[in-house]
Design a protein around this nucleic acid. Structure first.
Lengths: 194, 194
DNA sequence: TCTATAATGGAGGTGACCTCCACTTTAGCG
DNA sequence: CGCTAAAGTGGAGGTCACCTCCATTATAGA
């Protein structure tokens, strides 16, 4: 592993640190994550926490002990997905098409993790990880002169996340709007030399 | 007044229809609107309704009788603002700069009516009025070849409203992002004839 | 097996939503 | 002016979600 990645700890690793030691507690921890994912899929990001505890056959206090805020629960549930998205921020193509490819992948994956999108507006572990991944790609695209330098990571990421949340229902519209945004950040091509 | 505007009833007019006849009831109606505006300014769009009723020295049932949903209350509170914004969708400049001017005005006004923005995502009277105003300007800009024809009113309006909601705090960032979007919908200029 | 300690769960306080209906106020008529 | 039908009122109380507290229970390790 190259040295510059040394300090990149995946969210999944962070999560396993928080998993309790004792056998019964660890079982509850896992049951909560499973139940939460089901509830989020079914009822969206604001599924009642007491409902989740009930599905996990666990008291509400146990849920709160493991995940003091709803935010943390959501981060935990989607840790694997987020790690996956971040890992997909590679450097294979040229900077512009790599950026486009990744943003499309991001939008697509977030489409399945609906419950994640709303929370990304505010700070969270998932947000930090995704922003960092986006930052790399954006920096390269800017360095290559493909994107206006005034565009900041936060601009792009919030726009993309906002689009997922706002245009969740109609995929065609979502892609059209995404096209508008990508078109908006891209510099015009240089005139051909005569 | 030109005939094609005949069926344009302002939101304010619609509201006055709903104002009760009896003197005491009319007073309560007004007090509720005043209290609601204050509460929205202070606490945002999800200010407790019971708080609003209390400020208006009115029972909670009276609030619900006049405004069965929070949505309707918000629409009522901001009816004048929305009418104003719609009326500003004129046709003075050339289509593109008129569109830009109006969108900027819209964003600016919505900035003051923070509580309005979130609700515009779902259907409401305000939404309908603003969308109609936007539709006119967008259609003209498309007809003039200044905007890609694939862009739909709903795309543009939701983006703009989304930006107001998502970038409420940092005005500089908000304007930057708005620039990206406007840049994204605009067609490239035709090459100069040699 | 025993015990120190980690973990549990659900009762109960808080605050918001909304409905229901016994009561109060008003408009307008004689 | 006084009366009354009809319009309007308010707040008690049911529902639901959030979150905390702590007496009780289960586990790990000696």
């Amino acid at each position: 592993m190259p040295p510059f990645v040394k300090d990149t700890v995946t969210l999944l690793e962070q999560l396993s640190q928080r998993r309790p030691q004792r056998a019964d507690a660890a079982r509850n921890f896992d049951a909560l994550l499973t139940a939460a994912r089901a509830a989020f899929d079914e009822l969206g990001a604001d599924a009642p926490l007491e409902d989740i505890a009930r599905r996990a056959h666990v008291g509400i206090a146990t849920l709160y002990r493991n995940f003091p805020t709803r935010e943390e629960l959501i981060d935990a549930v989607y840790a694997a997905e987020v790690d996956g998205i971040c890992a997909a921020a590679g450097e294979h193509d040229d900077p512009w098409s790599e950026l486009v490819r990744w943003v499309e992948l991001l939008v697509d994956r977030l489409g399945n993790a609906q419950a994640l999108a709303p929370g990304l507006a505010t700070s969270s572990a998932s947000r930090a990880a995704l922003w960092a991944a986006g930052a790399q790609l954006l920096a390269r695209a800017i360095a290559a002169g493909e994107v206006y330098p005034k565009v900041e990571v936060d601009d792009l990421m919030r726009l993309v996340v906002g689009v997922v949340a706002m245009f969740a229902t109609d995929q065609q519209q979502r892609d059209r709007v995404l096209g508008v945004i990508l078109d908006g950040i891209r510099t015009p091509p240089p005139p051909l030399p005569k």
